[in-house]
């Protein structure tokens, strides 16, 4: 690259000024905006359809040709869903509590345990560390359909079947989270850890109060993946007592209740999506807004 300094006074002013970066052409910016808007419209399709379907009265759901937006928007689908849920044999709050437990335990455990492992794999050189990490990455690629049967056998030997642990424990050890955390921790400068060591900090303290705050975008992303996976987990293969079933499973049973429930089914799709979307928005805005000023590189 020609390192001849092109920066003149005018450009430097722009650096200190608010938004505009000095090395961006207006035409390029316009192109990017246009591209983003066009693709965003295509991408937004499922969300828009799901929400507008839930707001349609029954007769509009069966209209041909189908309309994108409801003509007479209504909330009847949601109130009908409330009525159906109120009539279920196992109290509805029970399903909700089961799912909330699974999601909380799985996400918290995964965050802590996978991050601890990722921390030593990224920042310490010890025999077996590299090999272990390579195995974790490779394990991501093995197909889940065929491991389902051996996994079920292991779980039944450990008496985990029909308990929430059958969902929670594998979620805690999910390879993807470790991989993600390790990649982000790798970017932290060694000097940061060395200076903490000189100050007399023990490993757990270094991990908890120095490394973790500096990889906040990573673990907020991990929370999104984990919550999304666990909240949508039907767990139908490993949990069969009605009182232990998950919310998603119960709602999908309502959804499968035939043509008469088409409206409620549309509402179910929206209800199931609420928690992942709220988690997503909360953590994304954290990632995108609070981290903007920090920067830690050596």
């Amino acid at each position: 690259m020609s390192m001849t300094t092109q920066a003149n006074g005018h450009r430097m002013k722009a650096v200190n000024g608010r938004k505009r970066r000095p090395n961006r052409s207006v035409l390029g910016d316009l192109g990017v905006w246009l591209l983003l808007i066009i693709v965003a419209i295509i991408m937004a399709l499922p969300l828009v359809l799901a929400i507008s379907n839930a707001l349609k009265p029954l007769n509009e759901l069966f209209r041909f040709p189908p309309t994108v937006f409801p003509i007479h928007p209504t909330l009847t689908n949601f109130s009908d869903l409330m009525v159906t849920m109120g009539q279920s044999w196992v109290p509805f709050t029970r399903y909700l509590a089961n799912t909330v437990w699974i999601t909380l335990l799985g996400t918290a455990g995964h965050l802590l345990i996978a991050s601890m492992a990722a921390f030593v794999l990224a920042k310490y050189d010890f025999p077996g560390g590299r090999t272990f990490f390579n195995i974790v990455v490779v394990a991501l690629m093995f197909n889940g359909y065929v491991t389902a049967v051996p996994n079920f056998i292991t779980m039944s030997k450990l008496h985990l079947i029909d308990t929430i642990w059958a969902v929670v424990l594998p979620a805690i050890a999910s390879p993807m989270g470790l991989f993600l955390m390790k990649q982000f921790m790798e970017g932290l400068p060694f000097s940061l850890i060395e200076s903490a060591k000189l100050d007399g900090a023990r490993e757990f303290r270094i991990f908890w109060s120095i490394v973790m705050p500096n990889v906040k975008p990573a673990w907020l992303t991990l929370i999104i993946f984990s919550v999304q996976g666990l909240w949508n987990n039907r767990a139908s293969a490993v949990i069969y007592s009605e009182g232990k079933k998950t919310l998603t499973y119960a709602l999908q049973q309502i959804q499968a209740g035939g043509v008469a429930r088409t409206g409620q089914a549309a509402a179910v799709i929206v209800v199931i999506m609420i928690v992942p979307i709220v988690t997503f928005i909360l953590s994304q805005s954290q990632i995108l807004e609070t981290m903007a000023s920090s920067g830690l590189k050596d």
Binding site: I113, M116, A139, T147, P150, T154, A173, E203, F207
Partner: peptide
């Protein structure tokens, strides 16, 4: 380091490596 790795390693071996080898 091994102490940090242990909880993950146990779960990972039980629910990922063991089924894979099987």
């Amino acid at each position: 380091c091994y102490l940090f790795l242990l909880p993950y390693a146990i779960l990972f071996f039980t629910f990922f490596i063991l089924p894979m080898i099987t």
